[in-house]
Amino acid sequence: MNRARTSRLNTVAAHAALLAWTAIALFPVFVILVNSFKTRRAIFAEPLSLPSEATFSMVGYRTVMAQGDFLLYFQNSLIVTVGSLTFILLFGAMAAFALSEYRFRGNMLMGLYLALGIMIPIRIGTVAILQMMVATGLVNTLTALILVYTAQGLPLAVFILSEFMRQVSDDLKNAGRIDGMNEYAIFLRLVLPLVRPAMATVAVFNMIPIWNDLWFPLILAPGEATKTLTLGSQVFIGQFVTDWNAVLSALSLAILPVLVLYVLFSRQLIRGITSGAVK
């Protein structure tokens, strides 16, 4: 009896603690989204209430659409993120396959060399990266960003993917070889399909930091035509500081794509983290 009561008390306490933190975690997002749909007066008068018929307004979104090139920014972010992920996955898987499948001199050393970048942030090299991009004429191109993010993502991708590729059975690959498949076909048609879950994990891990990065867009591609959504909303909000409707709407528009991605991929992301892919 006593025991049952304490356990119920524990459950209640557990839910209370989790609910409290959930509220803290979601509160700012809630406040921003809700107020972006209100009139300026209502934003200040009742910041915590939902928009009603009297206080509903889309004026902020109209300003954003009229002033900022959000569609272009969104498109740029999409190109950069998808492009970088493609190269990270393709090049990362190829290198991981070479490291996990073949014994050659310097294999260990190559693995260590590629793993260096897991702990050392690429930002340290920014001064020389900018210099190089200026010299090659890649400043203010999306290519510069894709290159940087690919280099940034490769070390962890190679590390995770080669762990998984070691588990692919040798018998399967050797059967392929006996059937006359060459090494490229074994990689593309036997190994890649088997490590798809690991590829998804790598993609999800890289997607959000690339989409959200401010540092490299600011330094390598600040031009109007190449602004990413993160940089674009930063600049826009900076210019419209006093226009609360516009700022709140811009923030909401910046939250939306990430939230959609998260809803689509959260299962993959959480499974990736909890399966110990980053141990």
Binding site: F91, A95, M110, I124, T126, V127, A128, A151
Partner: peptide, 20 residues
């Protein structure tokens, strides 16, 4: 198999790091 990853990683990450 190794070339693309090693090239991009060396050119865009390791080389600029030491160049910095």
């Amino acid at each position: 198999f190794l070339a693309p990853a090693v090239l991009v990683y060396t050119a865009v990450m390791i080389f600029p790091l030491f160049n910095t």
